[in-house]
């Protein structure tokens, strides 16, 4: 559905992307993770044809994004990083204008406004909206022409947890309808929950890619935590999952009836990210 080959891009000699490759299949939710300045937005801009790469190519449904932009546009919905709504127009006016430009009916407007609970605000001017509300309007705008593919640059940034969960539900429903979704995020839980596959981007390079489970398996630290009874309460012990020493130790505790609980430690995507890049995200 989306293929990217050896993308390179520099801004004024400073490299932002250093040769990026990935492929996204139809119906996937693909997450792009990375710290500030990693090149996520730059990648989205290139793949949606808004920015030209210095090197390499991007294809959507086998069409080159720069050469066949006008054919691709109706198939694609984009939520940009920065809200670009007409501030002096109301929510409804913004959305209706978009429908007129794409020559699609207004039917979707009400449906989605109700879904994100903005129907009552429809006549409010965008300049009077909160950041989260704008973010919702941007998402609706990207959906009005019923595109097959969605590009979302930090779709839940600035949203409260309930609103973010609402957006997640919408995205999962859209995905169930067969839409392909490319999203960037700093929010590891969000990506973990939503994405079929993720790629970690750091300093213009993809440093790891795979399904969240694969990555967790690959980078998990393979330890278990055992809580045992002691004279004055309880105590937590961490053991390696491999090796006979741990087995012997656990067998001993079991015989002495000392074990309260055993659980494995699972790395979160955030842990993995830090492990791979040696940096903290968020």
């Amino acid at each position: 559905m989306i293929t990217v080959k050896d993308l390179k891009k520099s801004y004024a000699e400073k490299p932002a992307l250093k040769g990026i490759d990935f492929a996204i299949k139809k119906g996937e939710i693909f997450g792009f993770l990375g710290p500030n300045g990693a090149g996520k937005t730059t990648t989205i801009k290139i793949v949606t044809g808004k920015l030209k790469a210095d090197h390499g190519q991007a294809f959507i449904k086998n069409m080159n994004v720069t050469e066949e932009q006008k054919r691709i546009i109706p198939m694609v919905g984009v939520v940009p990083e920065q809200a670009n709504l007409y501030e002096r127009l109301t929510i409804k006016q913004n959305l209706e204008f978009f429908c007129r430009l794409y020559q699609v009916s207004f039917l979707n407007i009400d449906k989605y406004l109700e879904l994100v609970e903005l129907k009552e605000e429809e006549n409010t001017k965008v300049k009077n909206l909160s950041k989260g509300m704008r973010q919702k309007v941007l998402l609706i705008r990207a959906l009005l022409h019923d595109p097959e593919i969605l590009f979302l640059d930090e779709p839940t940034s600035g949203l409260d947890p309930a609103s973010a969960a609402g957006i997640h539900r919408i995205l999962m429903n859209l995905n169930a309808e067969g839409k392909t979704i490319f999203l960037t995020s700093h929010n590891m839980e969000e990506v973990d929950k939503l994405c079929d596959r993720v790629a970690f981007l750091d300093d213009g390079e993809i440093v790891a890619a795979g399904s969240p489970e694969e990555l967790k398996l690959k980078y998990s630290d393979k330890k278990i935590v055992v809580v045992i009874k002691t004279d004055n309460g309880s105590e937590e012990r961490t053991l390696d999952i491999t090796g006979s020493e741990s087995a012997d130790q656990i067998a001993e505790w079991i015989k002495a009836d000392k074990i309260i609980s055993i659980h494995s430690t699972e790395s979160s995507l955030a842990d993995i990210f830090v492990e791979i890049t040696g940096r903290q995200v968020r």
């Binding site: 546009i73 670009n84 709504l85 501030e87 430009l101 794409y102």
Partner: peptide, 13 residues
């Protein structure tokens, strides 16, 4: 300035 031009440019217009 406000980048709304992108909406127009990245539309069928």
């Amino acid at each position: 300035e406000k980048n709304t031009i992108e909406v127009l440019l990245f539309s069928p217009a």
